[in-house]
Simulated scan of single mutants.
Amino acid sequence: MMTLKLGVRGLHNLEINVPNAVLVGETVTLECSWQLEDEEALYSVKWYRGREEFYRYIPKELPHTRVFPLPGIEVDPVPPNYI
């Protein structure tokens, strides 16, 4: 599992947990958590495999969550998690 922590203006304590490798047919959980500065609003959270987007969460859009079909990926959409 890989944990990535970055310091970005407006965004603090960003953590992304993604396994390094997955066996075909295995279930995995992708995790992304963060904190925003005061008055900042989350714009979006997107997940990709390579260049293909398969999950999108944009709180200002309805529906907030969209799942894009991608062979080999089944998504159980869970809203993003704030720390």
Rank of each mutant, 00 (worst) to 15 (best):
Glu53Trp: 02
Glu15Tyr: 00
Glu15Thr: 05
Ala21Pro: 00
Thr27Phe: 00
Val8Trp: 11
Gly10Trp: 06
Thr27Lys: 01
Leu62Gly: 00
Glu31Arg: 04
Leu70Ala: 06
Gln35Glu: 12
Asn20Lys: 11
Val75Arg: 04
Leu70Tyr: 07
Val45Trp: 02
Arg51Glu: 15
Gly10His: 04
Tyr48Phe: 15
Ala41Asp: 15
Ser33Asp: 14
Met1Gly: 15
Asn13Trp: 05
Val24Ala: 09
Leu23Val: 14
Leu11Glu: 06
Pro59Gly: 06
Ile16Glu: 08
Ile83Gln: 06
Glu52Cys: 08
Met1Asp: 15
Leu30Met: 11
Leu11Gln: 06
Pro79His: 11
Ser44Gly: 14
Arg51Gln: 12
Pro19His: 08
Phe68Glu: 12
Arg51Cys: 03
Asn81Arg: 11
Thr29Ser: 01
Ser44Leu: 13
Met2Arg: 10
Thr27Leu: 00
Ser44Pro: 01
Leu30Lys: 05
Phe68Lys: 10
Gly7Ala: 13
Pro59Val: 04
Val28His: 01
Trp34Asp: 05
Ile73Gln: 08
Leu6Pro: 01
Val22Cys: 11
Val78Phe: 12
Glu26Cys: 02
Gly7Gln: 14
Pro19Ile: 07
Phe54Glu: 09
Glu74Cys: 06
Ser44Arg: 08
Leu14Val: 10
Ser44Met: 12
Thr29Asn: 00
Lys5Asn: 14
Ser44Lys: 09
Tyr55Gln: 05
Gly10Gln: 05
Glu31Met: 02
Thr27Val: 01
Phe54Gln: 07
Tyr82Ile: 06
Val45Gln: 02
Met1Lys: 14
Cys32Thr: 11
Pro19Lys: 07
Tyr48Ala: 03
Thr3Gln: 08
His12Met: 12
Glu37Gln: 12
Pro79Ile: 06
Leu6Val: 13
Asn20Trp: 08
Glu61Ser: 08
Leu36Asn: 01
Gly7Val: 05
Ile73Asn: 07
Phe54Met: 11
Glu52Asp: 15
Leu42Ile: 11
Cys32His: 00
Pro19Asn: 07
Thr29Gln: 02
Ala21Cys: 06
Glu15His: 02
Pro79Gln: 13
Thr29Cys: 00
Arg49Asp: 03
Ile73Asp: 06
Tyr82Leu: 07
Glu31Leu: 05
Glu39Asp: 14
Gly25Asn: 07
Leu36Phe: 01
Arg9Met: 15
Val28Lys: 01
Tyr48Thr: 03
